[in-house]
Simulated assay, not measured.
Amino acid sequence: MEHLHYVVETDKIELKENKRDDDIEFIITYQSPEVHHAIHQIRQFFESDDYYTDILFYTFKDYVQIIVKRDSYLTFILGLFKWNLLSKVEWKE
């Protein structure tokens, strides 16, 4: 994970990433209904897979808290990229 770098679409979201013991916490703040829809699509994608606790979503009034297991980190980052919430994802040595 330390080699994976991404660039946030700052005109769409504010993203904070906090590494914890066994998982990573993301706090995503946004204003746009378009972004709300994108986050809903990401949530549906992960809730439809066979792993119910790989990624947990907690929705609050002004932000979304997302807890991601380390094994699902890359898939989650690519999901943010797929739904245009990240502008760039790259691997750096």
Rank of each mutant, 00 (worst) to 15 (best):
Y51S: 08
V64Y: 05
D22C: 06
V89H: 02
S87H: 04
D62E: 07
Y73C: 05
K16F: 14
R20E: 14
L74G: 03
Q44D: 13
Y30T: 00
T10Y: 03
L85Q: 05
D62V: 00
D50C: 09
Y58V: 12
W91F: 08
V35S: 00
V68H: 01
K69M: 13
Q44S: 15
E47C: 14
D71N: 12
T59P: 06
F45Q: 13
S48R: 14
F57I: 05
T75V: 11
V7F: 07
D21C: 03
D11S: 13
H5P: 07
D62H: 01
T53D: 11
K19I: 12
M1S: 15
T29F: 02
M1P: 15
D50R: 13
I42M: 11
D22Y: 04
D23K: 09
N18P: 09
F81K: 07
K88F: 07
V8E: 02
W91K: 06
P33S: 07
T53G: 04
K12D: 02
K92E: 09
L4D: 03
Q65P: 02
K12P: 00
R20V: 14
T75K: 15
E93M: 13
D23V: 03
D22R: 04
S72Q: 10
E9F: 06
Y73E: 07
K16R: 14
V68Q: 05
V68A: 05
F46P: 01
K88W: 07
I28G: 04
S87G: 06
I66P: 05
Q65T: 12
E25T: 11
K82T: 14
D71K: 14
L85S: 08
K69D: 10
V64G: 01
Y63S: 04
Q41A: 13
K19F: 15
Y58S: 13
Q41I: 12
V7M: 10
L15V: 04
V89F: 02
V35A: 00
V89L: 03
L15A: 03
T29V: 09
F81H: 10
W91D: 07
S32R: 00
D54Q: 15
I13F: 02
G79Y: 05
F57T: 06
A38Q: 10
I13R: 06
F57N: 03
E2W: 11
V7T: 08
E47S: 15
T59F: 09
S32K: 00
I13D: 04
W91G: 01
E14M: 03
I13S: 01
D23I: 03
V89T: 04
K92A: 10
F26P: 03
H3Q: 10
K19E: 13
I42D: 08
Q41D: 15
H37F: 06
V8R: 05
H40S: 12
